[in-house]
Each structure stands twice: as structure tokens, then as C-alpha cells.
Amino acid sequence: MQLELLKQLRILYGFTQKELGELVDVKQCFISQLESGTKNPSKKTLKKLELVFSDCGLSESELLLINEVLKIRDKEGLFNFETGD
């Protein structure tokens, strides 16, 4: 999983940082740090994050495709996950 996707996927699937943290056994502040890029997850935490989103129905190839689309949209300013615009 690309960590750049974490916040977007969390918002897309309606998780708060606290809820996602509980699902992967970390604190909300650690999810915040992952999203901001100030911390890196352990392999165990990364695997748990991948499992959460695969349980939501996303395959690894879909995660990669979403990452590419987000890069294009972000570059062109087409979508803002903060506001949903």
C-alpha cells in the first residue's frame, strides 16, 4: 500500500483516524503521523492497513490504479478529498 493513499482511502471509506487506528491496533495520533508522512508503519501495521482496505473490497491492483488517478487529479487540481469537491 502506498501511504500517500492512506488519508484518501480512509476518507473514501468513511473511517475516522481513531476508527482506522482501532482496526489496526494503533493510536489515532499514529494514523495522523502516517498520513502526514512523519512516521512510517511497521511491516505488521502496513499489512493490517492493507487487510482493512482489502476487506472493503479493494484489490492491490485497484489500489495502484487509484494511486495513479489521484496523482493525475491532484496534478490537475480536479478533486479535493478534504472537501469532496
Rank of each mutant, 00 (worst) to 15 (best):
K43V: 11
L65V: 09
E22I: 03
C29N: 11
N80A: 00
Q8G: 12
K47I: 09
E60N: 09
V52Q: 10
S36T: 15
E35W: 04
K44F: 15
N40A: 05
Y13M: 07
K7W: 08
S59H: 07
P41I: 10
K48T: 05
L5Y: 07
C29H: 07
N40K: 05
T83N: 04
G37E: 06
L65H: 13
I72Q: 07
I72D: 04
L49H: 03
V24F: 05
L9E: 09
E22T: 00
K71W: 01
N67C: 03
I72E: 11
L9S: 10
S59Q: 07
Q33W: 09
D25H: 15
V52S: 07
I31G: 01
M1H: 00
N80W: 01
V52H: 04
N80H: 13
E50A: 09
E19H: 07
E35R: 03
L51E: 14
L12S: 05
E68Y: 15
L51Q: 15
N80E: 02
D55F: 13
G84Q: 02
S54F: 00
M1P: 12
G84V: 06
L49P: 01
C29W: 11
V52M: 05
F30R: 12
Q33H: 15
T38S: 12
E4F: 07
V26Q: 06
R73I: 08
I31W: 04
C56L: 15
L12P: 06
K18N: 05
L5D: 02
L5E: 00
K43F: 10
R73V: 13
F15H: 09
Q33L: 08
Y13C: 08
T16P: 11
Q17F: 07
V24R: 08
G14S: 09
N80T: 00
G84H: 08
Q17H: 06
L12Y: 14
T16L: 05
K27E: 05
R73L: 02
T16I: 10
E82D: 14
L34M: 10
R10Y: 05
E50H: 00
I66M: 09
G21I: 00
E19G: 14
E22N: 14
E50V: 08
K43Q: 15
E68P: 13
L78G: 00
L3F: 14
F79R: 03
P41M: 12
E76Q: 04
S54N: 06
S36A: 10
L46F: 06
E76H: 13
K7V: 03
K27H: 06
V24C: 06
S54C: 08
K75C: 00
K71E: 15
L46W: 10
L46V: 03
K48H: 11
G57R: 07
I31T: 02
L64M: 13
L6G: 01
L6Q: 02
E22V: 04
I66P: 00
T83F: 05
G37H: 02
Q33F: 08
D25V: 06
E82F: 12
L6R: 02
K27P: 01
L46E: 13
G57F: 03
K27L: 04
L78F: 02
T38D: 13
C56Q: 14
G77T: 11
E68L: 13
L9D: 02
V24A: 05
I11G: 01
I66A: 01
G77Y: 08
T45C: 08
G37I: 03
L3C: 00
F81I: 13
K7G: 02
F53G: 07
M1S: 03
V26G: 03
E76K: 12
